[in-house]
Design a protein around this nucleic acid. Sequence first.
DNA 1: GTGAAAGCGCTAACAT
DNA 2: ATGTTAGCGCTTTCAC
Lengths: 341, 341
Amino acid sequence: MAALTIKDIARICGVGTSTVSRAINDDPGINPETKERILTVVEEFHYVPNNSARNLKVTDSNTVGVLVKGRNNRFFQSMYADFEQELEQAGYDFTFKEIAYNENELLEAEAMIKEKRLKGIIFLGGMIENPDESLARLDVPYVLCTVAVNTRLAKSSSVGIDDEKESYKIVDYLIKKGHKRIAVIVGQRRDYAVGRRRMQGYVRALNDNGIIFDDSLVIYQRDDLPDYSEANGYAVMSEFLKSGKEFTAVYAIADLLALGAYKAIYDAGKKIPQDYSVMGFDGIEITKYMHPALTTVRQPIEKIVKESVDIIIKEISGDRTSRQVYYETELVEQDSVIEIL
Amino acid sequence: MAALTIKDIARICGVGTSTVSRAINDDPGINPETKERILTVVEEFHYVPNNSARNLKVTDSNTVGVLVKGRNNRFFQSMYADFEQELEQAGYDFTFKEIAYNENELLEAEAMIKEKRLKGIIFLGGMIENPDESLARLDVPYVLCTVAVNTRLAKSSSVGIDDEKESYKIVDYLIKKGHKRIAVIVGQRRDYAVGRRRMQGYVRALNDNGIIFDDSLVIYQRDDLPDYSEANGYAVMSEFLKSGKEFTAVYAIADLLALGAYKAIYDAGKKIPQDYSVMGFDGIEITKYMHPALTTVRQPIEKIVKESVDIIIKEISGDRTSRQVYYETELVEQDSVIEIL
DNA sequence: GTGAAAGCGCTAACAT
DNA sequence: ATGTTAGCGCTTTCAC
């Protein structure tokens, strides 16, 4: 049961290793009969090539990596199928890698690039500081897809939405529906990524509508529960309801938080939207199945993915122009918001 | 920007490659000063070792692989964190790999084993025919974790639940609550995996309680929608409701299907549980946040994961006894079932 | 404590 | 069309 190598197959078939290599890699310059004979043996002995050896040797991989910050993030996971499809259609192989929030995406990216000889890499999610500088040392083109950054980008391509602006849209919508006391479930206290941007949009919308910002309506996620989870939304909303603060609407900066908030509100014996209107952010599929269906803004993930792939391919093909593309979200009016007054 | 190799670092530091290797791998037999000097250079030049080369050379990996059948399966994803924790605690590295439903797990397993020099592999989910035979050629120990099989296992270790029995439990519970006309949302028409087993439990529970099986109450998932998804549950339940069949409870063989069914029922202007009781299967977290919270059976994922890891470690350590462990689910009585009559 | 050198399994020149 | 061979970048004896 010792692992078979290409040499073993070559010996068994009485051919050279390169011929075996040609057979298993669909190389054109090989006699079809020889090929078939070899493949039969490969099949019979269940020979499986060692990818490490192949990766080590191969110079021209044709593979694009997708490096996802955060395991188990439903929003990003909903994009995987699109990435697969787009990359496949463009003739690229792909490899996904999910890393934990506390892992360093830059190191991981470099490791992936070397290990798999990537042609390009797409960063999905997370927060990268000064990408123009920190990512400059990558050997291959990269695209930041829904990645939060703290600087204006010049050299780094990016695709996503403007979180501040879209957040503004939500709050403005609630205000237009007559809401003045709008609670908001934001990130953890020191969230400098999307949570912060969405919070900023909230504040600006209030200001523009002449509503004084009341920080007692700001609900921070707990740091002892998973970020952006139902459990976190439930915990903080339950607590907030107990505080007795007056409000007519609550805006959760992620749909799953809203789902948790729903339960907290029901537990308190209140009704949505009659007692409290609720809005979310992201537009994940589950919002349709919530009861009542959650009014939210939907990120155009198909467009975001397609553009990310388009850019990485252009860059791989030599066009190193960096582009920053922002898409608008779509306001999905469902049943969780009521007009008041 | 050409990729740095260990040779480059060695040259820069004026040492041999093996010394660099020792430095980056925390090898004990190295002068601490030399080590520090090398690591400084490594840091400065952002040298990242090539994992393919390392994997190729290394014989003793200490890595366990987890091969997941099905991308984006929320039930399995909820187990990842536990796997990580258990394996880490046991001193093993791990690597996850998700493959599509139509990919061959056996081939993929062999490739993984070779590429990463795995010490053992855990199959998560899916359906494997005749594992005793088909998996015999793997070079390393393996455990089937929540994998459906069509034979009695002798050589293959497995951990999971008895789907038939647990399904029986659910239906029996509904019957004890007075329900006689119980619709069931099952797998696609030719599902030979867990869907089939759960269906069998449904039938047996009816029989044992003297209720005649009525196949017009069996609702098959559509094959043009994702398996076990909210969308599928919604679509088939909507259709079923239109048919006007009489029933008082519906049992969905997966929680997400139940979530879809909820919406279908609401859309029809009916109430849960007053008009229809609903039960699910799996006990994923979201069931707590559904409205009303879904009564379901919860798979003891912590136990399942822990036992899987324990077994693989024992087998790796030389104890090749094969074990088949079945856990009971926990009936989580929430608010979606009402007693009738 | 450190360096030289062999070789992991494969692919890609280069011969033939 | 096929075989021989050189290395990809690393770890690991084995000398020193």
